[in-house]
Lab assay of single mutants.
Amino acid sequence: TTVEVQGVEYRFDNPEEAEKFAKKMAKSLNLRVELHGNKWRVE
């Protein structure tokens, strides 16, 4: 599972970890998070 934060990609073996990371990043950067296939995008 991939998390893309403002163009930078982070890879996770565990989808739940990816989701937690994406939501945490979105909250700290005041952005929103969307799931596209198996990629979380924070923008």
Results as ranks from 00 to 15, higher is better:
residue 25 M to T: 07
residue 31 L to D: 02
residue 42 V to W: 02
residue 13 D to H: 09
residue 15 P to G: 07
residue 26 A to Y: 02
residue 10 Y to T: 03
residue 43 E to A: 13
residue 28 S to P: 03
residue 7 G to P: 00
residue 33 V to Y: 13
residue 24 K to F: 15
residue 38 N to W: 04
residue 4 E to A: 09
residue 1 T to Q: 10
residue 14 N to V: 08
residue 6 Q to A: 09
residue 34 E to Y: 14
residue 36 H to E: 10
residue 23 K to R: 14
residue 26 A to P: 01
residue 21 F to L: 02
residue 35 L to M: 09
residue 22 A to Y: 02
residue 14 N to P: 01
residue 1 T to G: 07
residue 4 E to D: 11
residue 36 H to W: 09
residue 27 K to A: 15
residue 16 E to M: 11
residue 40 W to A: 02
residue 42 V to Q: 03
residue 5 V to N: 02
residue 17 E to T: 08
residue 29 L to V: 02
residue 38 N to R: 06
residue 13 D to G: 09
residue 16 E to C: 15
residue 17 E to M: 08
residue 14 N to D: 14
residue 37 G to M: 05
residue 13 D to R: 08
residue 5 V to D: 01
residue 43 E to W: 14
residue 35 L to D: 03
residue 12 F to P: 00
residue 38 N to Q: 07
residue 34 E to R: 12
residue 32 R to K: 12
residue 21 F to N: 00
residue 34 E to S: 14
residue 40 W to H: 03
residue 22 A to L: 03
residue 43 E to I: 14
residue 38 N to C: 15
residue 8 V to E: 06
residue 7 G to S: 04
residue 34 E to Q: 12
residue 31 L to H: 05
residue 13 D to N: 10
residue 2 T to V: 14
residue 3 V to K: 00
residue 31 L to G: 13
residue 26 A to K: 01
residue 34 E to D: 07
residue 33 V to C: 15
residue 14 N to M: 07
residue 17 E to A: 10
residue 35 L to G: 04
residue 26 A to W: 01
residue 6 Q to N: 11
residue 11 R to Y: 14
residue 40 W to V: 04
residue 42 V to N: 02
residue 21 F to G: 00
residue 25 M to P: 00
residue 14 N to G: 06
residue 34 E to G: 07
residue 22 A to S: 02
residue 3 V to H: 00
residue 17 E to G: 04
residue 35 L to C: 15
residue 16 E to T: 10
residue 24 K to H: 14
residue 11 R to E: 10
residue 7 G to M: 04
residue 7 G to Y: 03
residue 3 V to Q: 01
residue 2 T to G: 04
residue 18 A to T: 00
residue 14 N to Y: 08
residue 2 T to P: 03
residue 3 V to F: 02
residue 41 R to T: 13
residue 28 S to T: 13
residue 23 K to A: 07
residue 14 N to K: 09
residue 17 E to C: 15
residue 13 D to Y: 08
residue 12 F to A: 00
residue 39 K to R: 14
residue 28 S to K: 14
residue 7 G to V: 02
residue 15 P to I: 06
residue 37 G to H: 06
residue 9 E to A: 08
residue 18 A to I: 01
residue 3 V to R: 00
residue 14 N to I: 08
residue 20 K to T: 11
residue 12 F to R: 00
residue 9 E to M: 11
residue 2 T to K: 07
residue 15 P to T: 07
residue 29 L to C: 15
residue 16 E to Y: 11
residue 41 R to D: 03
residue 24 K to R: 13
residue 36 H to T: 10
residue 41 R to S: 09
residue 18 A to G: 05
residue 31 L to A: 13
residue 28 S to D: 14
residue 42 V to F: 06
residue 9 E to R: 08
residue 9 E to G: 04
residue 22 A to T: 01
residue 18 A to K: 00
residue 39 K to D: 05
residue 13 D to Q: 10
residue 28 S to W: 13
residue 27 K to S: 13
residue 8 V to D: 04
residue 42 V to I: 07
residue 38 N to A: 06
residue 31 L to V: 07
residue 27 K to V: 13
residue 13 D to M: 10
residue 34 E to I: 13
residue 10 Y to M: 03
residue 7 G to C: 15
residue 6 Q to P: 01
residue 24 K to Q: 14
residue 22 A to D: 00
residue 6 Q to T: 06
residue 17 E to D: 12
residue 36 H to C: 15
residue 12 F to I: 01
residue 9 E to D: 06
residue 18 A to R: 00
residue 26 A to C: 08
residue 36 H to L: 12
residue 36 H to Y: 09
residue 39 K to Q: 08
residue 15 P to W: 08
residue 9 E to I: 13
residue 28 S to Y: 13
residue 30 N to C: 15
residue 8 V to Q: 08
residue 11 R to C: 15
residue 18 A to P: 00
residue 19 E to N: 03
residue 17 E to R: 06
residue 6 Q to Y: 12
residue 5 V to I: 11
residue 33 V to P: 08
residue 23 K to Q: 09
residue 40 W to F: 06
residue 41 R to N: 05
residue 42 V to L: 09
residue 22 A to K: 01
residue 37 G to Y: 04
residue 25 M to S: 04
residue 11 R to H: 13
residue 19 E to V: 05
residue 38 N to S: 08
residue 38 N to M: 06
residue 32 R to T: 12
residue 1 T to A: 12
residue 36 H to S: 10
residue 10 Y to H: 05
residue 28 S to A: 14
residue 17 E to W: 05
residue 23 K to E: 06
residue 31 L to M: 13
residue 9 E to F: 09
residue 16 E to H: 12
residue 32 R to Y: 08
residue 5 V to F: 08
residue 43 E to S: 13
residue 20 K to A: 13
residue 3 V to S: 00
residue 1 T to D: 07
residue 41 R to G: 04
residue 4 E to G: 04
residue 19 E to L: 09
residue 9 E to L: 13
residue 13 D to T: 11
residue 27 K to Q: 14
residue 1 T to P: 12
residue 3 V to I: 02
residue 11 R to K: 13
residue 15 P to Y: 08
